[in-house]
Simulated scan of single mutants.
Amino acid sequence: MTFLRILVFILAWLSTAALSAAPLVAVDVGHGIKDSGAISARGRPEFEFNRQLAGVLANALIDHGLAVREINFAGDIGSLAERPLQAVGSDFFIALHHDSVSERYLQFWEWDGRQASYTEVKRGFGIFVSAQNPDLATSLRCASTIGAVLRRAGFIPTPWHSRKHVPADAENGVWYYDNLVVLYRTTLPAVLFEAGVIKHREEELELLDPERQARMADALATGIAACLYVKEISVPE
Rank of each mutant, 00 (worst) to 15 (best):
Leu4Pro: 02
Ile6Lys: 15
Ile10Ala: 08
Trp13Val: 13
Thr16Leu: 13
Leu19Ala: 10
Leu24Lys: 15
Val25Gln: 03
Val25Trp: 09
Ala26Met: 08
Val29Ile: 13
Ile33Arg: 14
Ile33Val: 15
Ile33Tyr: 03
Lys34Ile: 15
Gly37Ser: 12
Ile39Asp: 03
Ser40Gln: 09
Arg44Asp: 10
Val56Ala: 07
Leu57Arg: 03
Asn59Ser: 14
Leu61Asp: 04
Leu66Gly: 06
Arg69Lys: 15
Asn72Ile: 08
Asp76Leu: 07
Gly78Phe: 06
Arg83Asp: 04
Ala87Asn: 06
Ala87Asp: 05
Ser90Val: 09
Phe92Ala: 12
Phe93Asp: 11
Phe93Ile: 08
Ala95Arg: 08
Leu96Lys: 00
His98Gly: 01
Tyr105Gly: 01
Leu106Thr: 04
Leu106Tyr: 04
Phe108Lys: 08
Phe108Val: 07
Trp109Asp: 02
Trp109Leu: 03
Trp109Val: 02
Trp111Val: 11
Asp112Glu: 15
Gln115Arg: 11
Gln115Leu: 06
Thr119Ala: 03
Arg123Asn: 12
Gly124Gln: 13
Phe128Arg: 09
Phe128Asn: 04
Ser130Gly: 01
Ala131Asn: 10
Gln132Arg: 13
Pro134Tyr: 00
Asp135Trp: 06
Thr138Arg: 14
Leu140Ala: 05
Ala148Val: 08
Leu150Tyr: 12
Leu150Arg: 08
Arg152Ser: 13
Ala153Asn: 09
Ala153Thr: 09
Pro157His: 10
Pro159Phe: 11
Ser162Gln: 09
Val166Asp: 05
Val166Leu: 14
Asp169Glu: 10
Trp175Asp: 05
Tyr176Ala: 02
Tyr176Ser: 01
Tyr176Thr: 03
Tyr177Ile: 05
Asp178Trp: 00
Asp178Tyr: 01
Val181Tyr: 06
Val181Ile: 15
Val181Cys: 06
Leu183Val: 06
Ala190Asn: 07
Ala190Trp: 10
Val191Asp: 02
Val191Arg: 05
Phe193Gly: 01
Phe193Met: 06
Val197Gly: 00
Lys199Ile: 00
His200Trp: 02
Leu207Cys: 02
Leu208Ala: 09
Glu211Thr: 15
Glu211Phe: 04
Gln213Glu: 02
Ala214Ser: 11
Ala221His: 11
Ala226Gly: 14
Val230Ile: 13
Lys231Trp: 06
Ile233Thr: 10
Ile233Cys: 08
Pro236Met: 05
Pro236Thr: 12
